[in-house]
Design a protein around this nucleic acid. Structure first.
Lengths: 224, 224
DNA sequence: CGTCCGTTCCAACGCGTGTTTGAACTCGGC
DNA sequence: GCCGAGTTCAAACACGCGTTGGAACGGACG
């Protein structure tokens, strides 16, 4: 697609614009309501496009979803780059900085009131997988997970591979829980919403909690 | 309901049995597929009951769901009692035992291949709340959360209330993540399913990770 | 100008959903 | 032995969903 410049330039006017508007609308709708509850009609209304036209560009709802998913993960990788997994952190301080950067990245894209739709959609695909999960787990998820593992390994050099993986899941799980069980967590904390101060508090806590769990001996946590 | 013995005993035969079978079937279906995706027809087929009969006993799908939810939480509290939140743990060893018991309880009811439908339904109501959430958060969720807080406080006596609450959420979140993001976590761990050995490994890790994060100074973890 | 083809729209279809209708059935009470 | 309330059932209803048919629009090309 996107055609050779000479032969297939048959876009009368706003055809590619329609496609783009549909993708953007579908991203929002699917991120907010999931694949099943997100309806074609809602997407088309938001995009200002007729339903038949949507089915002309993407041949079905499933294909539209897969296109959105690919787009979302690509943008996620482009806009929120993680510290490279291949280069191990040199010092313990660098490892701590990487851990904080990872936690901050996840928290700000998932918890903040203006959470990134790409991140929400990605999380939804992990918690309620569709057939499209296989397409993205190796390309998009695993590299980011390995980056977290690298940070963990920097903090806990002696740990086995399985321990490192478990620990990385623990770090991610602590943050993600505030999104997946958000309404309940808010009430248990006595808070109203995940505003910036609360998000910062969550990040500080998860970083401190995880550092104490990972660093050998008695670890000093930073400020507050 | 269940009537005064003299006046309203108008149950010709298996009316209460039908009610009970519907509740049991709805528990399974709703736990497996959620409120929206769990259909009345599937519930009725499983219960061997006509749809109109189901709508006679519970007047709508929503009311059936709320009835199931109340039943599930009541049974959860009855069958999986947590260490009492009111009595603080006396010794550090008792606090550690409580922490392990809490983690084991959550893990075995959520992760094991024959996970308890009550627990799955409860988790689903927390991650995808319906209007029924308000009815249960104070009666059923908060007491269990306070029990976890008590265990955390026993391990970290000096911590502030907010710190304790955050830490309790961290403990829960680590375990719950393996359920909510189960398929992805399995692939990242290189495992096939959450069999008993893997569940035990998760419990051991989460307990060790959390104890290191909570206990002051250099903590010795148990086995392995 | 006439033709073609990519694109958009209105209207409808087929399906699955939750719910209702109205008749049949089952008993305890008179 | 019949009445009537409680209960069950097959069939249908109204609605929303994803999807499709077919006509109308609009530039590109001959």
């Amino acid at each position: 697609m996107t055609a050779a410049p000479s032969s297939a330039r048959r876009r009368p006017s706003g055809a590619t614009a329609t496609r783009a508007r549909l993708l953007a609308a579908a991203l929002h709708v699917f991120a907010e309501r999931g694949f099943r509850r997100g309806t074609m009609r809602a997407i088309c209304r938001r995009a200002g496009v007729n339903g038949a036209s949507a089915n002309y560009h993407f041949r079905s709802k499933g294909r539209l979803y897969r296109a959105v998913l690919r787009d979302a993960f690509a943008r996620l990788q482009r806009e929120a780059p993680f510290p490279d997994a291949t280069t191990a952190p040199r010092t313990q301080a660098e490892a701590r900085a990487r851990l904080r950067s990872v936690v901050e990245g996840i928290a700000s894209s998932l918890l903040a009131p203006r959470a990134a739709p790409h991140a929400l959609l990605a999380l939804r695909e992990m918690t309620e997988p569709t057939a499209a999960l296989d397409d993205i787990v190796d390309d998009a998820i695993r590299p980011r997970f390995e980056a977290i593992c690298a940070a963990v390994r920097g903090l806990r050099p002696g740990a086995s591979d399985l321990e490192v993986r478990f620990a990385a899941l623990s770090v991610v799980g602590q943050v993600v829980y505030h999104r997946t069980a958000g309404p309940v967590a808010l009430r248990l904390l006595g808070e109203k919403a995940y505003g910036p101060p609360l998000v910062r508090a969550v990040v500080d806590h998860v970083v401190a909690f995880s550092e104490r769990a990972l660093l050998p001996g008695a670890a000093r946590e930073g400020g507050r």
